[in-house]
Design a protein around this nucleic acid. Structure first.
Lengths: 192, 192
DNA sequence: TGTATTTCTTAACTTAAGTGAACGAGTTAT
DNA sequence: ATAACTCGTTCACTTAAGTTAAGAAATACA
């Protein structure tokens, strides 16, 4: 399980065995049941999450219904906006599947940082990479129709379509569940 | 004019007079005419841009028509994806108005970096801030209809609506120019 | 200045997404 | 085991965006 973490880190910086052991000794791992809410709107939190196994999602509640804007699966990290801005959260974070997460917070990351200056380097590289990815993603979303977005998802993250409830997927694609059903039926029809 | 640059930088790091002078001596400023294409699809480039005055935009050409995905105005910085990924660009960058830009490239930024280690700090802070902004932006886009997006724009960047051609605005909002016209007419009707 | 081009708007028609309701299948709770 | 929910799908209807075409207004330019 820890291998996933070390594989991830090794993409950015290299760790000695000692460093690995200290990291493990911090006991940052947390097992979370499907359906658990990790962060609520209005809460302040210092926690950030790294998914070792499972899936978590970010969602807003607007006019009473959920709008899912992101899913995070294995090897993906989520730093909630409220951690950076130190303001109450505008959104929720919930657990889509039984998951194993690494949960750390600012206090801890000072401790981690003092022991591993490399971590700072990693965070910088990570945020630059995420920014680039995010921009491409945003552009792709803007320039395509819901149907194209679904087909792209089918290409790029086919697992999501299997593991995530349809109504969450729908709002992730920017449409209603009924429209997603219809859209899928339409695609099947075209194929045949 | 340089004040804009120094105002911007001072949000992240402080500069001595000496540092300011060296920065100015590098002669990074460039005056660009409206309509100029700064970067084309397929090109490789090391340049990144900081807008001192005017407006530039990022756009794709998909099936023969332009899809504008971002505008950059005073005090905004744009590092094209191709600079980071070192791959040919997937999009164009064009000048919407006569503009004054700071244009730098990787070679130069090594020079700059050696003279001002602070620049590295600034870039890190900047990319973290941009990532946060970008995420909020993306969420806002996903969770709203074209009409809401237009109304948001009217609130948050009213200048854009004045200075940018409607058809570019339309694709920025994810719709066709005709739909934007209609949408505006609809809003006017509601008001009265 | 006059001509061409681009830009914006309007209109009629098509297509796709939103809405409200209903239904069955699967899950949860009691 | 049964009742209550949740979830996905389907249907009929409404609303908004896409498409095609045409014309007016503004801009560029020769």
């Amino acid at each position: 399980m820890q291998d996933i973490l070390f594989d991830f880190i090794s993409k950015y910086v290299s760790l000695t065995e000692d460093e690995k052991n200290v990291l493990l000794s911090l006991d940052l791992f947390r097992s979370v049941k499907k359906g658990t809410t990790l962060l609520k709107e209005g809460q302040k939190s210092q926690d950030f999450y790294f998914v070792l196994k499972g899936c978590i999602r970010k969602y807003y509640i607007i006019d009473g219904d959920e709008k899912t804007t992101a899913f995070y699966t294995e090897m993906e990290a989520l730093t909630p906006h409220c951690v950076i801005s130190k303001t109450p959260s505008e959104y929720f974070i919930g657990c889509v599947e039984d998951s194993i997460l690494l949960v750390s917070n600012s206090d801890m990351s000072e401790e981690v940082n003092s022991k591993f200056p490399k971590f700072d380097t990693m965070c910088r590289l990570l945020s630059e990479e995420l920014l680039a990815k995010q921009q491409i993603n945003f552009d792709e979303f803007k320039t395509s129709s819901p149907e194209q977005r679904y087909l792209n998802l089918l290409q790029n993250r086919p697992d999501l379509i299997q593991r995530v409830p349809q109504h969450q997927l729908a709002s992730y694609l920017g449409i209603k569940p009924q429209s997603l059903s219809r859209l899928r039926a339409r695609i099947l029809e075209k194929k045949s």
